[in-house]
Each structure stands twice: as structure tokens, then as C-alpha cells.
Simulated scan of single mutants.
Amino acid sequence: MKLGVFTVLFQQMPFEAMLDHVKAHGLDAVEIGTGNYPGDAHCNPDVLLEDADARRKWKNAIEDRGLMVSALSCHGNPLHPNKEIAKGFHETYVKTVKLAQLLEIPVINVFSGCPGDHEDAKYPNWPISAWPHDYTEVLEWQWREKVIPYWREWGTFAARHGVKLAFEMHGGFSVHTPATLLRLREAVGEVVGANFDPSHMYWQGIDPIQAIRVLGKENAIHHFHAKDTIIDPTNVNTHGLLDAQSFRNVQERSWIFRTVGYGHDLKHWADIVSALRLVGYDYVLSIEHEDALMSVEEGVRKGVANLKQVILNDPVTEAWWA
């Protein structure tokens, strides 16, 4: 396994200064945004798609520092019921797939998106209740008419370009649990897998270690985000886990994101890493820092230090004692 970072944290830095900074943290890999929610501070697809020399310089700058790109990330909502908004997200996705192929990057990270509740809707609708039956009808309409048709077409597009799609299972989107990820994978194919982020499992009441086992049986983990969450026992009994308060309202929220090791201890994170190895995941753990109680620098520094204690670097050997 290798240790990396989602470089949106350092978007204020010039590209090569950012790479030097990542290297100074002792990391092996970078995950780089190409637009949509992550922005494109360090990778502009419009420039790189048109200029082979620019692509070569971009790639060399990374490789000359002994780094690799774990994924290009273009998280967005291509299913947004506002067609103009959806178009922007979709176009960035298409460019990212094409660019990943040219740069020989095997994975792009995405959200599934979330449609509205009918053809003329203005806003996404995320149904999470089986009753009243209106919600069930909306949910089935979304998957039948929007989610599966879109990703069948554009998942095939990614597969033709030799790129795997790593869906971050995130609240507010149609794919937000292992079950919904596997539902999409069954409909679309093995190009679909997870960008597995434990932080989004915790607040949904899902044990990430068991979720890794569930997805691992299907070889459905394509990328991994290293991020933690802590649940406040008092606040969760006031607001529930489906807490829509601002992330800035740290003292009142039911849960907040934390740096690895500050939501769950390192034994737990060692178990996560072991579960990943058990199901055959031997790729990058990409640190995503969204800890409201730490600066970017402290959060990355402590996350790196904690993960280096539990990551498994060497390949598995035969059981010489057996």
C-alpha cells in the first residue's frame, strides 16, 4: 500500500510547490482535482487535453519527485435536475475520463449524483424513508429513469477509455451505502467500484470494516479516502445522525469529520488497513482533511504520522510457519 493526499487542501499553492510540499510530508501519491466540487487548481483538463507538451511536463513534475497519481477527482452531480448545472458536471466528467486515459491514470473519483423527484424538478431529492410510499416511488423512478441509464452509458464510456470509476458513497447522493454501490455495479458492470471513505460510513451507522468485507467480496473497492469521524453522544440524541446543521456549527453538530486517529483509535485503523489487505486492496490510502478542529498543516501532519504506524507497505509473503 501507498500513502497519499487529496491535494485540494493545497489549492492555493502553485502546482510544483504543492508537489514539493507533499513530498516533504513523506507521501507517495497525490489525488488531484480536475474540476466540479474539487476545483482544478492543479490540473486543468482544457489545457492538458489540447497540449501534449503540457501533459508531459505535468506528468514529469510528479514522477521526478518519486510520486504517483492515485486518481483524478471530479466529484459532481451530473444527474442534477437543473439541466445547465448537470451539463457542467457532465462535461467535466467526460474531460476527466479522456485525460485519465492520456495520462495513464487508472481511476477517477466521482459521486453518483442525485436526481430530482420528477422531470420538471428544480432541486435534487434524496429519499431515505420507505414510508409514506411517495418516497419509495420517487426512489425507484430515480434509479429506473436517471441513475442507471446515465451510468450505463457513461460507465461504458469510461471502460472504453480504460478508466475505473470510484464512487464515493456520500449522503445526499443516490450511491451512499455499500448496497447502493453494488446495485449500480450490478446494473453497469465492474467499471463501477467504491472510493471507500470510512468517514461517511460512521455517520450512517455502518461499520467500515464490515463494509470493506462486503465490497471486497465483489472486488469493488477502486480507491480509498483516509478520513475519520467522531459522533457526539449528546448532540446525536438531540439531532439524530441525519444532522443538516452547518459544518461550521461544530459544538452543536451530531458528528464532525476528524483527522485519522482523532475519531477512532489506531487499533481501529489498523483493523481497517488489515481488512483492506484481506480483500486484496493494495493501492493508495489518500488522506482527505476536513477536520474543523485542526489546521490543514497539523491535520495532514498528524494524519500522516498516524497512518504510517498502521499502513502495510510490504507485499504479503507465504506463511513460512504453516
Rank of each mutant, 00 (worst) to 15 (best):
V147T: 13
I148H: 08
I148K: 12
I148G: 00
P149Q: 08
P149A: 09
Y150M: 09
Y150F: 15
E153Q: 15
E153M: 07
E153P: 02
W154V: 04
W154L: 11
W154D: 00
G155E: 10
G155A: 07
F157M: 03
F157R: 09
A158T: 00
A158I: 03
A158Y: 08
R160D: 15
R160N: 14
R160V: 02
R160E: 15
R160G: 09
G162C: 08
G162T: 10
G162F: 03
V163R: 01
V163C: 02
V163S: 02
V163L: 05
L165A: 07
A166R: 05
A166P: 02
M169T: 09
H170L: 06
H170N: 02
G171D: 14
G172F: 04
F173V: 02
F173K: 00
F173T: 13
F173C: 01
F173W: 12
F173E: 01
S174I: 05
V175D: 01
V175I: 11
V175Y: 03
A179N: 13
T180E: 08
T180N: 06
T180C: 01
L181I: 12
L181F: 04
L181C: 12
L182P: 01
R183Y: 02
R183N: 07
L184M: 11
L184T: 05
L184A: 04
E186A: 15
V188Y: 03
G189H: 09
E190C: 02
E190T: 14
E190H: 13
V192H: 06
G193C: 11
G193L: 10
A194V: 07
A194M: 07
A194F: 02
N195F: 00
N195R: 01
N195K: 01
F196D: 09
D197R: 11
D197Y: 08
P198Q: 09
P198K: 09
S199M: 11
H200S: 05
M201W: 04
Y202M: 12
Y202R: 06
W203F: 15
Q204G: 05
G205A: 02
I206S: 01
I206T: 03
D207S: 13
D207G: 12
P208R: 05
P208I: 08
I212L: 12
V214E: 15
V214Y: 13
V214H: 02
L215K: 10
G216R: 11
K217G: 14
E218D: 13
E218Y: 14
E218W: 04
E218L: 10
N219P: 03
A220V: 08
I221G: 02
F224Q: 03
H225I: 12
H225V: 02
H225R: 09
K227F: 08
D228I: 00
D228Q: 05
T229K: 00
I230Y: 12
I230G: 00
D232H: 13
P233K: 10
T234S: 14
T234N: 12
T234L: 14
N235P: 00
N235H: 08
N235C: 05
N237P: 00
N237A: 14
N237I: 00
T238Q: 13
H239Y: 15
H239T: 10
G240L: 07
G240T: 11
G240A: 06
L241G: 12
